[in-house]
Amino acid sequence: MADNKNIIYGLYNDEVDLLKAVKEANGDHLEIMDVYTPFPVHGLDPLLGLAESRLHIAGFVYGTIGFLTAFLGMSWIFTKDWPIIFGGKPHWAVPAFIPITFELTVLFASIGMVVTFYIINGLGPGVVNPTIDLRITDDKFCIAFDKSEVDSSKVESFLKRSGASEIHSKTI
């Protein structure tokens, strides 16, 4: 969002109104830039055409890496790099490797997913994103349109009709 964008947005007081409005906007073929809400609103994703997040697939991949790192690492260390006899037990003591293998699987999956989450969302310490409206994190539900992609007058009449409590224009 480096370039300045002219947007027009409507604020709704309730998530039910918001869902209805998004449905209507789809019916009117108005292209929504984004929807901002104070908490996750269920039922919004299909209306906005958002594909299911693939974060869990990434998590599985990271977990697999963790699993292999731990298991292969311990196996290599105790059979090749520095074999030590502990109480006459075999060098390749698979059951004894299970706890650490499990922990590293979880550790890699969690760290990987969280880091991925912030990178793909463009969020992180020090990131300053343009604020559309301060009340979006409080109690307002916002539908924003990019003026370069939609007809502003059509959007305005739509926002009025669909019950937006406030309509504003802004450059972000």
Binding site: P40, E52, L55, V114, I132, C142
Partner: peptide, 22 residues
């Protein structure tokens, strides 16, 4: 501290997915 959080619908979707898998 808030990492520049905006409340965008896609962010919330991923946030929920992340919390569920975690």
């Amino acid at each position: 501290l808030s990492f520049g959080w905006t409340g965008s619908a896609k962010h919330w979707q991923r946030w929920e997915a992340l919390c569920l898998v975690l």
